[in-house]
Amino acid sequence: MSQYPLYSAAEFRRRAQNQSGGPVDLAWRDHGDHALNPDNILHVEGLKLRDAAVLVPVIDDGDDANVIFTLRTSTLRKHSGQIAFPGGAIDPEDASPEMAAVREAGEEIGLADVFIEPVARLPFYLAATGFRITPILAVVKPGFELALNPTEVDDAFQVPLSFLMDPGHHATDTMVWNGVERHFYRMPYGARMIWGITAGIVRTLYERLYS
């Protein structure tokens, strides 16, 4: 049994480094909304995908850690107006997905790299919008200040890890996208609606670390 509170950053780190569910580079088909849409897997695998990374920032701020999310501006070309993790495409100068995720967090919300400790990866998320996303799990030391990039981010906010890891908050829904019925997760939090790629990553986090 762990010595740490269940939803603390220390326990999150421990579980992230010892996650279940198979190797992260092979397990994406079995998790999140990929598992809800098995008929879509071959289609997504056949797309030409650009590599991207997102940071899943868990703040080390007590027994119930908080996770940072962003609200993307309505002017962005893809996923505008949606709730997301900081992140973006991996550039040629990025030595790793971890470096890309940390860089993007700095560019989007001003989260300085000295506060960020990458601890593990989740399986890929293959997005039909053209990206192979590597979620980087990270512990964030308290004391940081955020400075939002107004061209990319309208808002940044925090959600308790305990809320996100409660499967009772993981509703499923259906929509038709490009003529195909797709099933997805949605997680209402007050006036916020976490859904789509971000909710799929959160659900994968739950399945790998807390289920």
Rank of each mutant, 00 (worst) to 15 (best):
W177C: 08
P5Q: 12
L146G: 07
L76A: 09
A199I: 00
A127T: 10
V140D: 11
A156L: 06
P160W: 02
G62V: 01
I68F: 00
F131W: 11
D25E: 13
E104C: 05
A10H: 10
A138I: 04
A112E: 14
M187N: 14
R103K: 05
I133S: 04
N66D: 13
E98F: 04
T151V: 04
P167F: 03
A105H: 04
T198V: 10
L42G: 08
T204F: 05
E11W: 00
G179K: 15
G62H: 05
Q17P: 02
S74G: 09
R182D: 13
L146Q: 04
I59L: 00
D154K: 12
F184D: 08
N66E: 12
A65D: 05
R77C: 06
I194T: 10
G168W: 00
E117H: 15
E107D: 13
T172V: 03
R121Q: 09
L111E: 04
L6N: 15
I109V: 08
T70C: 07
R192A: 07
E11R: 01
E145Q: 11
L164R: 02
D25H: 09
L71D: 04
V114C: 05
R203L: 03
A128K: 15
H79C: 10
P23K: 13
A147S: 12
H183L: 02
L126Y: 06
A84K: 13
G168C: 00
F157Q: 08
L122N: 06
T151S: 06
N178L: 15
P188L: 05
A89Y: 10
R186F: 10
E152W: 14
N178A: 15
T172A: 01
Y189R: 12
R50C: 09
P23N: 12
V180D: 12
S74C: 07
A101M: 00
F131S: 12
F157L: 06
L36Y: 02
S20T: 15
Q19W: 14
D113L: 06
L42D: 13
H79T: 12
A191G: 13
W195F: 13
A16K: 02
H169K: 12
I136N: 00
F157I: 03
L209I: 10
Q158V: 11
A16R: 05
P123Q: 01
P150A: 03
K48W: 07
F115R: 10
L137G: 01
E104R: 13
M99C: 07
P5I: 10
L49T: 10
V119F: 06
P167H: 08
V176L: 01
E98P: 02
F85S: 09
I133F: 05
L205V: 01
R203E: 09
E207T: 15
R203Y: 05
T73S: 14
T134S: 03
V56R: 08
I59S: 00
E107P: 08
R103H: 08
I197Y: 15
G87V: 05
W177V: 14
K141D: 06
N178F: 15
H169C: 07
G179L: 14
